[in-house]
C-alpha cells in the first residue's frame, strides 16, 4: 500500500496547492511576509545553537522581532480575510491601522532591547 500512500500524499499536495492558488493575492502577500519572518527566526535559532546565547538580550530581541512580526501579520490576515465571518464588520483599514500601530510599538521595544 506504499504506492497508494505516496499517491495519496501527492494527490493531497496537489489539492492543497490548487486550493491555495485560489486565495486572494493580498492574503498571499501576508503569508509570504509571515514565512519571511519565520525563516529569519529559524536562522537565528540555528546561530544561537552554534555559538551559544552570549548577548542574550540581542538574541531575544532578534527572535522577538521575528515572532512579533509574524504574530501581528497573522492577526492582520485573520482580520482582513473576507471569508472570516467573525470580522465581517471590521473595516480592513482599521485592522491595518492597528497592525501599523502595534508594529511601531514592537519595533520601539525591539530597538530598546537590542542593546
Amino acid at each position: 500500500m506504499a504506492r497508494s500512500t505516496g499517491e495519496d500524499a501527492q494527490a493531497l499536495f496537489h489539492s492543497l496547492r490548487s486550493a491555495y492558488a485560489a486565495t486572494p493575492k493580498n492574503l498571499k502577500i501576508i503569508d509570504l511576509y509571515v514565512a519571511f519572518a519565520v525563516f529569519t527566526a529559524l536562522i537565528q535559532v540555528a546561530y544561537m545553537a552554534m555559538v551559544g546565547s552570549f548577548p542574550f538580550n540581542s538574541f531575544l530581541s532578534g527572535i522577538l522581532s521575528c515572532t512579533g512580526t509574524a504574530v501581528l501579520a497573522v492577526c492582520l490576515r485573520i482580520q482582513v480575510n473576507k471569508e472570516n465571518k467573525e470580522f465581517k464588520d471590521l473595516p480592513p483599514e482599521r485592522a491595518y491601522a492597528d497592525f501599523v500601530l502595534c508594529n511601531l510599538v514592537l519595533h520601539l521595544v525591539i530597538m530598546n532591547f537590542l542593546g
Partner: peptide, 20 residues
C-alpha cells in the same frame, strides 16, 4: 550568519515580485 539572516528578506522581495 548576518548574511544568512538577510537572505529571507531577499526571498521576500523575490516572492513579492513573483506574486505580481
Amino acid at each position: 550568519f548576518l548574511a544568512l539572516t538577510l537572505l529571507p528578506f531577499l526571498g521576500f522581495l523575490v516572492g513579492l515580485l513573483k506574486l505580481g
